[in-house]
Simulated assay, not measured.
Amino acid sequence: MGFLVSNPLPVLPEFQSGMVKSAHYNYKKENSMDTSSKAYKLLSLIAISGECSKDVYPFLYLTDSYNEKLMTRLKSDGLIKIHYKDKLRGIRLTRRGKDLLLSLSPERFSYYFADNSETNRPRSDLPRRLRLQQASIAYAMLQCAGIPVYPEEKSALFSGNPQDSAKFALPLFYTAREWKELGAETIKINNSRSLGILLCEDALYVLYFTGDHPIKWEYRTELRLKAFLNYHLKQDMFLGLCQKNTDYPIKALFLGNPMESAKTLMESNGGYQKSYFYLDGSFDFMHFLPASMEGITLLKLLCSPALQSTLDSLLRSDLEPANPDLGLIHDAIKGTTPVLLSYNFDMLRLSRFKTALSFHEITGHLICFDFQKDTLQSYFGDLATIETIDLAKFERRFFH
């Protein structure tokens, strides 16, 4: 286990000084643009979210200096505009920007520029704008992790045709708007806070964005959403997934910023009338990952059951098997100490482990990534010791 160290997290190579290359920008009067350019990628991201947050820039590998030049050029060409209201600044497309994208790829963008949809005519009230901007960050992270989000990159969600799904490899992401196309059937889950669903080989993740504080939360609505998704899984309408895996769990995945906001979520009591998130058990698994480049690595890992299995085997190689007579949830034993593999940051599991340690008046041991250590140490206090996986070494070993 050579990548188990406790050194501080190093700066990722993409962000070291002088190592980020500028993208070629090629917009001309005759409405052409290099579709491999970062300008096109940024415009595309604005299109699918309705209003884009500046926090997406790192996921497009835009340096501050290049970003300033790019934004100036896009504004001077009349493709974007800055919308500022309620102290919130966002980026929106102009009519000319939409026309350019439609001329370049109608099969991709016509869906987002139809009728009075929020991606075509975004509202101005603060909660809706925040949601659109949060979605833009989530979409940028998904794309950065190599997960398709655009319509032409995936089969229709409820096609029910295994031949359609065979054309596309998992993982795939579908927005909440795509499942709401079922119409009246989705009325009871219209108030769900989910941004969409991520279909992986071994699980379906319901995606939420919580920011730096507990998300607004309605337990019954999210429970109905889970039941809705489970029903359609059993009816085999999700790309034939149940044919491939009869034990296909539905999990919650929360994006937040910074990493410390995970502790806030785990300690939340729901606030007044339980209107904010708390660990209510509506899902059996509630994972958290930061809206950062570290979160991208964790997202890739969660989407790869084979890689998780390999990592688990490596981490357990120096440990004893779990003891079923111990009376608490754990993955292995180190001496006489129960060990929890916590790199996937399942908040519900972490909370139960902490409660059990306190109840039995014993100390546990956690194995996590280095960027997760401070949050877990603050949450567990003296109840657990922590061993870390060096993120940079892990990435070099498994992703390069």
Results as ranks from 00 to 15, higher is better:
residue 346 D to W: 03
residue 248 Y to G: 09
residue 93 L to G: 04
residue 278 Y to T: 07
residue 150 Y to K: 08
residue 50 G to I: 04
residue 133 Q to A: 03
residue 36 S to T: 13
residue 229 L to V: 14
residue 120 N to F: 12
residue 210 T to D: 11
residue 295 G to R: 10
residue 132 L to C: 11
residue 37 S to G: 01
residue 390 D to C: 00
residue 124 S to M: 08
residue 377 Q to I: 08
residue 124 S to G: 06
residue 222 E to L: 04
residue 15 F to E: 11
residue 278 Y to P: 05
residue 169 A to F: 02
residue 187 I to R: 15
residue 60 L to C: 05
residue 344 N to H: 07
residue 244 K to F: 11
residue 63 T to N: 04
residue 261 S to T: 12
residue 129 R to H: 05
residue 344 N to Q: 15
residue 182 L to F: 04
residue 114 A to M: 08
residue 327 G to N: 10
residue 316 R to D: 01
residue 146 G to F: 01
residue 33 M to A: 09
residue 372 Q to V: 03
residue 52 C to K: 00
residue 137 I to P: 15
residue 279 L to F: 06
residue 7 N to V: 06
residue 113 F to W: 03
residue 161 N to E: 12
residue 225 L to A: 11
residue 397 R to A: 11
residue 231 Y to C: 11
residue 111 Y to K: 15
residue 258 P to M: 04
residue 395 E to G: 03
residue 69 K to Y: 11
residue 382 D to W: 03
residue 114 A to D: 12
residue 210 T to P: 05
residue 293 M to V: 11
residue 325 D to P: 10
residue 180 K to C: 10
residue 20 V to L: 09
residue 246 T to P: 14
residue 357 L to Y: 13
residue 153 E to W: 00
residue 232 H to M: 01
residue 39 A to F: 11
residue 377 Q to P: 00
residue 302 L to T: 02
residue 64 D to G: 14
residue 133 Q to S: 08
residue 321 P to F: 00
residue 385 T to H: 07
residue 117 S to T: 13
residue 368 C to G: 06
residue 44 S to D: 04
residue 67 N to L: 07
residue 396 R to F: 03
residue 87 K to Q: 09
residue 320 E to D: 13
residue 62 L to P: 04
residue 215 I to L: 15
residue 71 M to Y: 06
residue 136 S to E: 05
residue 344 N to S: 13
residue 152 E to C: 06
residue 140 A to K: 08
residue 253 L to I: 09
residue 164 D to M: 12
residue 228 F to Q: 12
residue 295 G to A: 09
residue 370 D to Y: 12
residue 47 A to V: 00
residue 143 Q to W: 05
residue 387 E to H: 12
residue 7 N to D: 14
residue 83 H to V: 06
residue 230 N to P: 07
residue 183 G to I: 00
residue 1 M to V: 13
residue 222 E to P: 04
residue 26 N to P: 04
residue 253 L to A: 09
residue 52 C to F: 02
residue 394 F to G: 05
residue 187 I to T: 14
residue 158 F to Q: 08
residue 271 G to Y: 07
residue 51 E to F: 06
residue 80 I to M: 03
residue 33 M to H: 06
residue 125 D to S: 06
residue 45 L to G: 11
residue 246 T to Y: 12
residue 288 F to E: 01
residue 258 P to A: 04
residue 14 E to L: 12
residue 167 K to H: 02
residue 275 S to H: 11
residue 157 L to M: 14
residue 138 A to T: 14
residue 147 I to G: 00
residue 242 C to W: 09
residue 92 R to K: 03
residue 167 K to Y: 03
residue 311 L to V: 15
residue 71 M to S: 10
residue 312 D to E: 14
residue 36 S to W: 08
residue 42 L to Y: 04
residue 320 E to A: 13
residue 398 F to Q: 05
residue 345 F to N: 14
residue 146 G to Y: 02
residue 311 L to E: 08
residue 40 Y to S: 07
residue 241 L to I: 07
residue 361 E to Q: 15
residue 171 P to Q: 02
residue 219 Y to W: 03
residue 42 L to Q: 02
residue 130 L to P: 02
residue 99 D to P: 01
residue 179 W to G: 05
residue 295 G to C: 11
residue 231 Y to S: 13
residue 254 F to I: 15
residue 221 T to C: 10
residue 339 V to T: 02
residue 60 L to Q: 05
residue 261 S to M: 13
residue 247 D to M: 10
residue 358 S to R: 08
